[in-house]
Computed example of a mutant assay.
Amino acid sequence: MTTTLADEFETHRPRLFSLAYRMLGSAEEAEDAVQDAYLRFSGADRTGIEHPAAWLAKVVTNLCLNRLTSARARREQYVGTWLPEPVVTADGALGPLESAEQRDAVSMAMLVLLERLTPTERAVYVLREAFGYGHREIAGVLDLSEGNCRQLYRRAVQRVGEPQARFEPASEQQEELVTSFITAAREGDLAGLEKLLAADATWWSDGGGKVIAARWPIEGGSRIAQFLAGGGPKFSVGLEFTVTEVNGATGLASWAGDTLVGLAALEVRDGLVVGVRAVVNPEKLAFARRQLSRA
């Protein structure tokens, strides 16, 4: 059977999407970058492409670098807390997440940390940590010297911290914890919520000014419990909740009928919720809606 150009590209698409998403923190923009890469691939002189995987990785990385400049300007004007677009990862959308370190690499927490980096630092860090590129390979992708790439990587690590597994991987116990969390919030059970939340827990909400959401982080388990218990009836009216994997962590999907209206990733440590990042901006849920509609 003859392999078409489109077929060949499709073999690379998952890896390219994973790269673009880590670079941009936006699933929608990552899809656009990958599609742009396909257009370039289809119009390129194939005799000059010795290694398609490397060629495409370079194209996607540079397309993302161009997009990051304008993205930073938009995020400076963003209303309230900015969070990455959530991705449902149970179906392997971001590649295999078999270890705690791999899950941490795509976590909402890590993607927020990557916002501290310059676009070039981010590219070096992602290529090195997520895709195992050597500094010489990274230099080829970014058209920089190997020494410069090493320096950029050191600077990136200083800004985001050493790569590590920061949170416990998803498990059946965590699913039970999330189910208990939903029940306590529905019932406005303040004491029940406080038992599930770490004392230093933090809640972030991203509504983007499109829907009602807390514009500033809520810090402290007791304050989060009061926030949720006080809104218990509002939390549950007309909504259904399901447990799903979000960015490698146990998460919570909120539904109004057949419409996904929120996705939250929960960070769990020592059996307690230490962080919740909830995205309710409808514009940031489009990709996840398509994922879950196929489930």
Rank of each mutant, 00 (worst) to 15 (best):
G257E: 13
A295P: 05
P163C: 09
V59F: 02
P86M: 09
I49V: 15
S26A: 14
G92N: 05
S222A: 15
C149M: 13
R74T: 15
A249M: 12
A90N: 06
R122C: 04
G132R: 08
L97N: 01
N148D: 08
L127H: 05
L65H: 03
L272D: 01
W82M: 02
R22S: 07
D45R: 09
L97T: 09
G271P: 10
L197A: 02
R155A: 11
S99Q: 11
G95R: 03
L260Y: 06
F167Q: 00
V79D: 09
L56W: 06
G161S: 07
V237Y: 11
R15Q: 10
C149A: 15
R186T: 14
F9R: 07
A27E: 05
V280E: 00
G208D: 03
R155Q: 12
T4V: 15
A225M: 09
L263M: 06
V237R: 11
S222Y: 11
H12N: 07
L114F: 10
P169D: 05
E168T: 10
G43I: 10
L285M: 04
A44Y: 05
E29I: 07
L5K: 12
L83W: 07
T242K: 09
S236L: 06
G257R: 08
L260C: 04
R103A: 00
V141K: 00
P217H: 10
G275Y: 01
T250Y: 00
E172M: 09
L228T: 05
V59L: 05
T259R: 14
L142D: 01
V160F: 03
G230P: 11
R223V: 13
L292N: 06
V59Q: 01
T202R: 04
D258N: 09
L56D: 00
R103P: 01
V274E: 02
V141Y: 03
P52G: 12
P119A: 07
F41M: 06
I224H: 01
R122H: 08
T81A: 03
G232I: 13
I138C: 02
K195C: 02
H51C: 11
A199K: 10
E121G: 01
L292P: 07
V157L: 03
